[in-house]
Structures are given as structure tokens and as C-alpha cells.
Nucleic acid binder design. Structure first.
Lengths: 138, 138
DNA sequence: TCTTGACCTTCCAGTTGCGGGAGGGATTAT
DNA sequence: ATAATCCCTCCCGCAACTGGAAGGTCAAGA
């Protein structure tokens, strides 16, 4: 299969597939004309990568997951640990976003949103709480 | 004030402040020796930027917010609209992350996490659902 | 046969929002 | 005088691609 075919089947842009080859996630064979020739295993790996990326794993984590996947002697504990670390990062991100959301929603609610210039959103952003670390200028 | 002072007071790295100048968010004066000289207004703007960035606004949105802030004739509706767009993006991101979290948590729970190689996480990642767009290879 | 169009190739640049570090000048403290 | 601490500019790097330029290849139609 050429790159266009695997791109369609794996649901990934050809550019992304070339990039994955460049960073060593896959190593497709080459035809005599220089075209990449993808095996079923390559396609399989690309599908794996797509799914793992969709779950938010970084490309480096994907590399690790792929290595575990191909290692018949792996321990499922290693996979689980990787997934748990990732889950923890997702939770941290969720909390951060939720905090932003709360603040932003409050501000939006307090804003009249009309033709007048008075705006609690801008007022909040401009609120200079004196939380400066160092006192005394020069 | 020199850059180190404003950095401390605004709670932003000097690098970031230079970057903000480079992209035209602030335009501090220059002393004869070439050092940036920050006014109270510059400091105020930097604090504004820090707060807006902390709420997740992109730098370009910050530019817009800053312009609205400085425009005495603004309509609060414009600010509110900007904030609402941003809120919508946060909500989208939250939902995406929550979906990832659900899937990942399920997988983690179903994985024994011991010395054996069998792993539902890897099995799921490798699951090749035949959702390919185009049929028929070459 | 020629040409068109759809493929494929490589390489380079851009994206976001900075951080690190080199290499050098200015200022302040000892 | 000299060392320490500022400050300056410039350029590279990060993640994970995406877009585009310039050109080679292949199958089909006039």
C-alpha cells in the first residue's frame, strides 16, 4: 500500500505518517521508485498510534506503548502505570480548566454586555492585587 | 523601572516581558544605555496580561482585551462576547478531556497490572475497528 | 505519443508561547 | 580594580504537526 491508502485506512493525514516515520515510530519499506510501501503491520501500528493519540498520550508515551505492545514478555503493570500517570495529568488539566471555567463564568454573568463601557470582566483583569514578591523599587 | 523590577512586581519572567514587547503588546521606553524603562502603566498592562493569560485567553485575545481595556468608548458587550467565546472553547476542551478520562479510567480498571503480559489497555488501543473511509486498495 | 492529473518524494518554514544559553555591554558593590 | 549582577540582542529548541514549493512517477484519455 502507498501512503495515500494507509492514510485513508488509518484515518491519519499523509503528513503525519511521514512525520511518524521521521521520528522512528514506524519504518515502512521502500519501493524501487522511492515510494513508501506499507505492510499490514505498519497500518496496524498507525491505527494503534491514532487511538493512543486520541486518548491524549504524548507521542513519546505512544512510542513507549508501542514498544510494550510489541514486547510479548511485557508486564501489564508497566502499561497500567503509564496509563495511570497519564490519567493523573488529565485530572490535573481538568481541574485547572474547571477553575478557569468557574472564574470566567462568574465574570461573564456579572457583565451587562450592553453598549456601556463599564465591564466587571475588564475590571477584574485590571485588579492589581498587591501580591508582588519583592518590595521597594529602584 | 528596569525589567527585573517589573518582572518581580508583575510576576512574569523577564523573557516573557521581552517577548510581549516583541509582539507589540507593550512598548516600554528606552533609557540612554538601551535598557527598557517601564512606566507604571506598562506594569499595569503586564499585570493585566498575566491575569488574562491565567484565565486561559490566548495572547491574541489578550491583545484584543487590552485594546478594549484602553478604549474608553468600548461596549461591555464586546468584552462579554470575547469571554463567552473563550468559555465555549474551555467547555469543549473540558468535554474532550472528560471523555478521555472516562475511557482511560475504564481501561485502567480492567487491567490487572501484574507481571502477566495480557493487557486490556493495549488490546483496546490495537482494536482495529473497520471504520476506514475508502474501500479497495491498490 | 503527448499530456493531464493524481499520486508520490524531499526540504523548508510556520504555528504557540515562551525558555535556554551564547556573547557582550552597563552598573553596582567590595 | 574587579567581581557580581544586572541588562542587551540573537538564535535555537520544544510538541506535533501543517502548508507549500519544487520536482519525480504513474495510469489514463485524446
Amino acid at each position: 500500500m502507498n501512503i495515500g491508502d494507509v492514510a485513508d485506512r488509518a484515518g491519519l493525514p499523509a503528513k503525519t505518517i511521514r512525520y511518524y516515520e521521521e521520528i522512528g515510530l514506524i519504518t515502512p519499506a521502500r519501493a524501487e521508485n522511492g515510494y513508501r510501501r506499507f505492510s499490514a503491520r505498519d497500518l496496524h501500528k498507525l491505527a494503534f498510534l491514532k487511538r493512543a493519540r486520541a486518548l491524549g498520550f504524548s507521542v513519546e508515551e505512544c512510542r513507549h506503548l508501542l514498544a510494550l505492545y510489541e514486547d510479548q514478555g511485557r508486564a501489564s503493570a508497566d502499561v497500567k502505570a503509564l496509563a495511570q500517570e497519564h490519567l493523573a495529568r488529565i485530572d490535573a488539566k481538568l481541574e485547572e480548566l474547571a477553575q478557569m471555567r468557574r472564574t470566567l463564568a462568574e465574570l461573564i454573568e456579572s457583565c451587562a454586555g450592553d453598549h456601556r463601557p463599564d465591564c466587571p470582566i475588564l475590571a477584574d483583569l485590571a485588579a492589581q492585587e498587591a501580591t508582588s514578591a519583592k518590595a521597594g523599587g529602584r
